[in-house]
Nucleic acid binder design. Structure first.
Lengths: 205, 205
DNA sequence: AACCAACCTACCCGATTGGATAGGTCGGGT
DNA sequence: ACCCGACCTATCCAATCGGGTAGGTTGGTT
């Protein structure tokens, strides 16, 4: 089996090569996307699988994957990344990638996954793909809000009245109302229902 | 490699066996859960993988999987089903199943998946697992509501005031309020924000 | 020390909402 | 004809909400 590994991280690349060779997998190495494509062009036989680091030079997000899929017709190409969120992995697989490998994968699983993908299957770690939809966009909203405002918004999202929220937080109702008003402005809502929907939409709570 | 297939559908079971034997996989067959567990007990060597049909006799949903996992310690057990929704697959995998095989899988992929799982990996078809979270619960709520109530609820979810909703629907405001009140009762909400959150939660709109 | 920004608290008032009650219309079924 | 369910309209009142205004605290700057 012939595999091409393209990663700009020398240590990782060599470690992978070592593991793969122990498993009798023929490995070719590259340190960026252009030289990876170059290696494909020069190779005397097609690769069974091409591994691309999502963050390496020349990739530019998923554009690099798209380029590689177009350039190397019929190739099976998988993405590797230690940091990319699930959404990226999903898009890559939709675009036709053979798989997505988080760098947290054990060496054994990695070899298994590579063999699996080389057989024409799609691979991605189940737990990674079914993980909840990221908490990053949460910050975009939540970091604008003060702690109190966040608590108030939480109460709002549970359908509570201002009075209830005040009791639960141990503060007075008028205060809750002020927090409401200011957080409306911060998140761009005109009333409490809109605020709740916006928070929900952002994946808050 | 030794695999146990338990399925109450004779044709499917024999077809699978045929495929697996062509691939030099040693197959043992069973037609329900008890006889599958029986076969495991009687076997002279442990199975590399056990395939259980989700719908067969003795399974009783995921209880059968739980029983099998407890009964056959250290076994790798995968679920097969042509009908089970994604949620079932997710729960099965969380419980420790080795994988989930929809019966729509091609024979080739099925063999690949079986080998993959036998190596200790978890398998489930990517597209199946990332499919949107079903639109069934939508009906559970929506079908209780009259057309008008649904329209009102939609306006509510957009954060509109009763007056706006009335204008958009070409009816009077008091009418909107009445619809609100009745739909609160139908979906179990105490106020408009709760109603909006419940609708959102159910995937409505 | 004086200042400022960000946060929390508080009161008041007009607008909106929640809920009860009471009719009126339209179509389908006994 | 009768009843019944689903829909629309209406009025009244108490509770809640939205927004303006103002004072108090804390922590960091000038």
């Amino acid at each position: 089996m012939r595999v091409l590994i393209a990663d700009d991280h020398d240590l990782l690349r060599d470690t992978l090569a070592l593991w793969f060779r122990q498993e009798n997998i023929d490995v070719t190495l590259a340190r960026d996307l252009p030289s990876a494509l170059d290696a494909v062009a020069k190779a005397d036989a097609p690769f069974d699988l091409i591994l691309l680091d999502y963050g390496m030079s020349g990739m530019n997000g998923l554009d690099g994957l798209e380029l590689a899929l177009r350039e190397v017709t019929g190739a099976r190409i998988a993405l590797m990344s230690g940091t990319a969120p699930r959404e990226i992995a999903e898009k890559a697989l939709e675009m036709g990638a053979a798989g997505f490998l988080p760098k947290t994968l054990s060496a054994k699983s990695l070899v298994n996954a590579v063999r699996f993908m080389a057989m024409g299957e799609q691979f991605a770690p189940i737990d990674f793909m079914t993980a909840p939809a990221e908490v990053a966009p949460l910050n975009a909203l939540a970091e604008k809000l003060s702690p109190r405002e966040t608590q108030v918004l939480k109460g709002l999202c549970e359908g509570k009245a201002n009075k209830e929220i005040a009791r639960d937080l141990g503060i007075q109702e008028p205060t809750v109302k002020l927090h409401m008003k200011t957080l409306y402005r911060k998140i761009g809502a005109h009333n409490r229902t809109q605020a709740a929907m916006i928070a929900k939409e952002a994946g808050l709570f």
